[in-house]
Amino acid sequence: MTATPATGDAQCNNLALRKAARYLGATYDMALAPVGLRGTQFSILQKLAARGEMTISNLAETIAMDRTTLASNLKPLAREGLVTVEPSKSDRRARVVDLTADGQSRMKAALPLWREVQSRFEESFGGAEAARLRAALGAVLQTGFEPWAE
């Protein structure tokens, strides 16, 4: 006899979040495919375009990703010449990520595709509901867990 969990799928926050994340992530990936970007890559380029160069640690914190996973996501962007990753001039132990001109150009080409899928989601889900969803997901990041604590 197999053990059954005390709570059903409908009560598992992790499963519900991951299912929605996979669903929306695949939708954004498909929309951005014509410019050769995935949703995570677009988010990285967008943050760098908005904030300028950042250390890997700061960028990871900004997008709520551990540094190792971020470093893996940066490799193809660096290979394509969309970002540079270099030692910091002020702290040789830190690495700084910066957007290149090609990265800026690719991000700008992706922006209308992102806006279109963003608009389609908000039309389908509801603009006010989408805003509440973003606020609720933002609040999740303030629950006190430390998933990447060293």
Rank of each mutant, 00 (worst) to 15 (best):
M1H: 14
M1W: 11
T2F: 13
T2G: 08
T4G: 05
T4M: 07
A6G: 11
D9A: 09
A10R: 05
N13Q: 12
N13I: 15
N13K: 08
N14L: 15
L15D: 01
A16W: 08
A16E: 10
L17T: 13
L17D: 07
R22S: 09
R22H: 08
Y23W: 14
Y23R: 14
Y23L: 07
L24N: 08
G25Y: 00
T27D: 11
T27N: 10
D29Q: 01
M30H: 14
M30K: 14
M30S: 13
A31Q: 01
L32H: 02
A33H: 11
A33R: 14
P34T: 08
P34V: 10
T40E: 04
S43P: 03
L45K: 01
L45A: 04
Q46D: 04
K47E: 05
K47D: 02
A50R: 13
R51Y: 02
R51G: 03
R51E: 07
G52M: 03
G52N: 04
S57E: 08
S57L: 12
T62N: 04
M65G: 02
D66Y: 06
R67D: 04
R67N: 10
R67H: 06
T68M: 07
T68K: 12
T68W: 06
L70N: 00
L70P: 00
A71R: 11
S72P: 00
N73E: 05
K75R: 11
P76L: 00
P76V: 00
L77V: 01
L77A: 01
A78W: 00
A78R: 05
R79V: 04
G81T: 06
G81E: 06
G81R: 06
L82K: 00
V83H: 01
T84M: 10
T84E: 15
T84Q: 11
V85H: 07
V85M: 13
K89E: 15
S90E: 14
D91L: 08
D91E: 14
D91F: 10
A94G: 06
V97W: 03
V97Y: 00
D98G: 15
D98C: 10
L99S: 01
A101K: 09
A101E: 13
D102G: 03
G103S: 05
G103C: 02
G103H: 05
A109K: 12
A109I: 10
A109H: 06
A110S: 06
A110T: 09
L113V: 07
W114P: 00
R115P: 00
E116W: 02
E116F: 05
V117D: 00
V117N: 01
Q118L: 12
S119L: 09
R120Q: 14
F121W: 12
F121M: 12
E122S: 15
S124D: 12
F125A: 10
G127S: 13
A128I: 09
A128R: 09
A128S: 10
E129S: 13
A130L: 08
L133F: 15
R134E: 11
A135S: 12
L137V: 11
G138L: 05
G138K: 14
V140G: 03
V140L: 14
V140H: 05
L141T: 06
Q142D: 10
T143V: 14
E146H: 13
W148T: 04
A149T: 07
A149N: 08
